[in-house]
Design a binder for these strands. Sequence first.
DNA 1: TCTGAAAATGAGGCGGC
DNA 2: GCCGCCTCATTTTCAGA
Lengths: 155, 155
Amino acid sequence: MYNPDRTDLEILRLLEQDGRMSHKVIAQTVHKSITPVHSRISKLEKSGFIRKITALINPKLIGRGLTAYTQVLLKVHSQESLENFIAEAVKIKEVMECYHMTGTFDFLLRITIRDMEAYNELLLKQLSNLPAVAQMQTFFVISEAKYETAYFNTV
Amino acid sequence: MYNPDRTDLEILRLLEQDGRMSHKVIAQTVHKSITPVHSRISKLEKSGFIRKITALINPKLIGRGLTAYTQVLLKVHSQESLENFIAEAVKIKEVMECYHMTGTFDFLLRITIRDMEAYNELLLKQLSNLPAVAQMQTFFVISEAKYETAYFNTV
DNA sequence: TCTGAAAATGAGGCGGC
DNA sequence: GCCGCCTCATTTTCAGA
């Protein structure tokens, strides 16, 4: 759809660093004027390279301090069964990520929630009602050593 | 540090939706004028509620189409051993997330990389050199059914 | 903490190269 | 595809309540 050159990738890197960096500052950094920077960002957005510009919130400060990863194994692996599970899992607002996986289980869920008590309730009332589940195994995050959404910024 | 009220949380919700939403639009939505919106956002940033405003990039379009989750078990669980592992793991740029976990393994890594060939090389040259690893097990993402960073937006 | 307004900065569009 | 200019919108600061 759009074939980004080195300048485009540099712009992506800068916007990963700061999604509100001004076009002027970007232009100075990539050694172009504001106009091409502007049009390149438009193209990068329209073509889907930039999925979204968003504020990343600290979950601990807003009562979502507990993160769980849950592995799910289904009873049957028909297309219908897989699609049903996905349709229900993604509706749960505490389920932030849901992946269909290779290997010994079928799905991996990232769940963020207030605390263990709230998790208990989520488990009883929502997770346990997900369709066609054969087995679920949950691991909790003790500490976050790294969380990075930026692909272009070297650590 | 800072105790956000309902208006602050509403502002967070809007900035999760669109990190570049103008203060004017935010002000209209939360029924305040621009000045308090401005000062609230400053406070939310300084106090760490907003970790960062960033562009989320589509990894598939920039040659990072393969995502792996790797579970790591260490040989020894001394503080030194844990810290050593973390220090080395977070240096690897393909390791986007690294968590210390409860349960039958110690760490969970999220790895994004070009393709399986590149993963093979990463495994041989970097992952296999991580210190004090007893066991590693990797699962690959077949498809992403949900990826959400916004805590306040109901699905 | 809020309102309203002024000053500074940025965005987005146009003609020309 | 780039530059410089122009106009409008937005951000940011300030006085005052």
